[in-house]
Design a protein around this nucleic acid. Structure first.
Lengths: 349, 349
DNA sequence: GTGAAAGCGCTAACAG
DNA sequence: CTGTTAGCGCTTTCAC
């Protein structure tokens, strides 16, 4: 077993040890490691480089972080009841966007999915191990407001996704999309065929503020038509394929098949489409169906679903960029960033 | 603006400041913060609690980490060319499983998606900011082997996913599934209908070792039948919906529609199904189609796809558990963990 | 160009 | 039960 192998179990090589081996001061090694190569002679530079590689030295970031009071990492807190929170395409995109941007800038993303009840005791909240926090909250208005208050008290720069909030003079930035407006566009689109009955599909679990606004927009859009349709709002439990289909089955049993089904996401819309098709109705002739948050897999369903695309990846990347800018300049350049949306005409309406 | 508000911009409150305010020693405050409440009198306990909350104290983990030489975080390195690497359902599940388990144990997951070319310069590789590393590699055999060598030299406990490797006496654990065997099962299943021509669908981007073994298994399974079918292997570029369909279009133009299409994942299988259906062929009567790595969204396709389910979430969770155990005991209890798979009979075969 | 001293905030170890 | 001392490994600062 060589020296190099032994390091796994033995103590790590420190800057000082490299310095001794290279017969220079720790400062010189530090300068080398940090790329300040001009601060030393050619000869010293080579000696240090050689010893670093021979001893297989790695910088200890804990020590560096302490000294510099910067952690070089950003926390991403995702409040959700489901352990598979990441499976949501929207969340996935936000995380990927943020993570990639941070990585490019030498930062890391600390990912933490957390149940609403564990929120207050999350390490990201009780101790300082990041330079800033990003959060995707869930729960009803009161719960989310409480979560925001908790996060404010942490005393770190904070970015929240999909919340309309009064940022006041706090160190907070809100990144969201225009939910009401996109819902309205979808509502108007459906209203063009003058449906007399419409069913909304939403999930009671993990209700986001965004979804509520989105539905209000859909109502406004639908009511802009000449004849105002009858609107029923259906709770699909977890929003899973099976929950959605069984909720809709019950709804249809009592009220019949509606003229339009508008879901707050594509997954529920597709579950509804298949159920309605299985009962012999055709889409869009008999029933119009719309989704939301267009995700890649919606192409697997037929007919192609009419939906709204949100730039979730860009929102995550932008969050990272704003956070880094905030860390450099001392304040957020914008307190609220609203992203545009894109209407996607499919064949389901 | 109160004192509490000001902390955002001002210096953080330290343990020492709390100690002074509560008129005790820093050690006592430290003991309180770490839950050693029995080490102090009721009266002191309350005074400390009060000052901590009044001053809004948060523990500085950088200092704690340095002192204790533990970082309380595990790195997850995902080597991939695509910035949306997380969109892959399999990856997502592994990350979610690991993240949740770590969070429950007070650890954080440091997520880093990285392009193969940037691998050597990743902060997770060049410095120490985690207690251990997990990695999902990609590239051809040589590239992945080089990645593993690089990771070994970091000198941290290492868990790699989906690699068959010679762990030797290194501090490495491999977590994978029996790819060959699951491919063989799928091959035998298809062989039962005695196809005379079979097309394999795989992606040249992000080729995993796992996929190669899987395809070898499929060949072995197919050749177990009485008549050995003609097998063509088709490269679908990125593996995206469009790339898959255009690759398959070209293939069919030259060789006609095969009796069976076997994809290395569900996404490509569904893209193929839709294309074949659009050309008037019916599934499974005219063409059998199989997928792999059953993911949630495959229910959106019709007919339901025959696939193999892998316990990706559990594999991620297990990785976290093994890593924590390794950190506690000093060595991995098992160097290689092979997970079972589940054959899912759909209506596409 | 190079080095010495000091200290970031916390906790292990021990003394009382 | 409470306090003191020392030091984790690095970098800031300033002196040479």
């Amino acid at each position: 077993m060589t020296d190099t192998d032994r390091q796994t179990s033995a103590k790590r090589v420190t800057l000082k040890q490299v310095a001794i081996a290279a017969e220079v001061s720790p400062m010189t090694v530090s300068n080398f490691v940090n790329g300040h190569h001009h601060l030393m002679s050619e000869e010293v530079r080579e000696r240090v480089a050689h010893e670093i590689s021979r001893l297989n030295y790695r910088r200890n970031d804990a020590a560096r972080n302490l000294r510099q009071s910067r952690l070089l990492s950003i926390g991403m807190l995702i409040v959700d009841n489901s352990p598979t929170y990441l499976a949501d395409g929207y969340t996935t995109q936000i995380v990927a966007g943020a993570s990639n941007h941070l990585t490019d800038q030498g930062f890391s993303l600390l990912l933490q999915g957390i149940r609403p009840n564990d929120f207050e005791t999350s390490p990201l909240v009780t101790s300082i191990r990041t330079d800033g926090l990003c959060a995707l909250l869930s729960g009803d208005d009161d719960q989310r407001l409480a979560q925001i208050e908790t996060l404010k008290k942490v005393g770190q720069p904070l970015i929240v996704f999909l919340e309309s909030l009064n940022t006041g003079d706090h160190d907070i930035c809100s990144i969201r999309q225009n939910e009401f407006e996109s819902g309205r566009v979808m509502g108007e689109h459906v209203a063009r065929n003058n449906p007399s009955s419409v069913v909304f599909l939403s999930a009671s679990d993990n209700r986001w503020a965004a979804v509520v606004e989105r539905m209000q927009g859909m109502v406004a859009g639908l009511e802009s038509g000449t004849d105002k349709p009858r609107i029923a709002s259906l709770d699909c439990g977890s929003g899973s394929f099976d929950d959605t289909q069984s909720a809709l089955t019950a709804q249809i049993a009592s009220d019949g098949i509606p003229d339009a089904i508008m879901a707050v996401n594509d997954q529920m819309a597709i579950a509804a489409m298949q159920m309605v098709q299985a009962r012999g109705a055709s889409i869009p002739e008999d029933v119009q169906v719309t989704g939301f948050n267009a995700f890649d897999f919606r192409r697997y369903a037929q007919p192609e679903l009419t939906s709204i695309r949100s730039p979730a990846y860009e929102m995550g990347a932008r969050a990272a960029a704003e956070m880094l800018n905030r860390l450099n300049t001392g304040s957020f350049s914008e307190k609220e960033i609203v992203f545009p949306f894109e209407f996607l005409q499919g064949h389901s309406t």
